[in-house]
Design a protein around this nucleic acid. Structure first.
Lengths: 229, 229
DNA sequence: ACCTGAACACCGTTCAAGT
DNA sequence: ACCTGAACACCGTTCAAGT
């Protein structure tokens, strides 16, 4: 009945359980939805008993906070990359950050949800998360502030313009994640193009127009989506 | 030991259990957060046993869908009211709908979350919800389409302008509900004013300017929040 | 120092039995 | 026709006991 102890039973000490749990939870979120991430299932996937995770995280919310921090790190890396190839014009940089943000959200809805919804884990208990988030926010802030300083903005209230940009971008991402697109007859394929067009519309709307009436009638900004960056 | 049966034991048949459960769940959401609504607790509050709700709803998601339908009904009533007092100008009507929507969301975050997040209950299983939602959407659609037909819009792509308006308004509401405002130093007190300013900014941005340079310098749209409606 | 495994309180859901 | 109450499988969390 009893096998000899030759069988290579998984070692008693996992070694990198903390990291393994975060990765398992990340995968779980992707497959089952962010709200269905379970400590027990993460433990199962990491090959440990139900109580083991609580040596590394005081509670479920702490695990989710660590997952959010990892997701935030990935999002930030994506944005850093996009910003590396962006031009120097501040409004173009703002557009580049917004686009990278939206593209990542569209491709990683569950991870984006974990980052942005504060239901899943408590307040800003995670410093890494706040720090990475501050960096991302700082990039758009800086771009807009620079544009304002250079006299490129049509609207006088920078704070309001900033808020509008945030709300527009966040709202688009959230509509995608909350499943509003089918209702609006927006297919997953065209969503990235719409994101681009939306950013163009916004930048065109807040930018100061070169002259009241352009004699040559050339379009200044906005318009339909032409492939770019 | 045993009391005589004079005590007015709650009647075996509740009578209006279905409705009572929806109301209990609504109250629960307000107090504990939308994601902490529990079938058992709703049953407890309605004074019935844990199994009783399942005579009226096949599962938890169905209960949540009924809750969402009731919340949607209330939101719609609010918007209907606001639209009754709104002027005839289509852009002013769009603004009025948006403002009523945002004010309700700010005052009823948990209920708004139940309406908008499709995680909590399945797809559009609820017809009432879809219908009421279609009515609300229809109001803003109609206002914007009317504005476009009257040649009031500066941007040619109505669909994009519509999407931008939706994303902006939805994003602001979602930022409030997801707890992003503290990070942006936005206090609950000033949120309604910001909502108004944001709508003014948007309407001003999409509206065709009357003349390139107004000689009298009168503000056309947008600007800070003056008390209105 | 880190993990197991049994335990507890809780939840969604089912179902025979009561009224 | 509608509700009770016990039951089952699941979850978060704790903790003595193992390695």
């Amino acid at each position: 009945m009893s096998l000899p102890e030759i069988s290579p039973r998984r070692p008693y000490h996992h070694g990198k359980l903390k990291q393994a749990l975060v990765e398992a939870a990340l995968a779980l979120a992707e497959q089952a939805g962010a709200e269905n991430v379970t400590v027990r299932e993460a433990a199962r996937r990491a090959g440990v008993s139900p109580g083991a995770p609580f040596r590394h995280f005081p509670d479920r919310e702490s695990l989710m906070a660590a997952v959010a921090a990892e997701a935030q790190r990935r999002l930030r890396a994506e944005i850093d990359g996009a910003l590396g190839e962006a031009p120097k014009d501040p409004l173009a940089r703002f557009r580049a950050v917004g686009l990278a943000y939206l593209r990542w959200a569209l491709r990683n809805p569950a991870h984006f949800q974990i980052i942005s919804t504060h239901d899943l884990f408590d307040h800003e208990r995670s410093e890494v998360l706040s720090q990475d988030n501050a960096k991302i926010i700082g990039m758009t802030e800086a771009a807009l502030a620079e544009a304002a300083a250079a006299g490129l903005l049509a609207h006088p209230d920078l704070r309001l313009v900033r808020l509008a940009g945030r709300a527009l971008v966040y709202g688009f991402a959230r509509m995608a994640i909350d499943g509003h697109f089918p209702r609006w007859n927006i297919t997953p394929e065209e969503a990235p193009r719409l994101a681009e067009a939306l950013l163009d519309l916004f930048v065109g709307a807040i930018a100061k127009k070169p002259s009241p009436v352009a004699e040559d009638g050339s379009p200044i900004a906005g318009g339909s989506s032409r492939s770019s960056a």
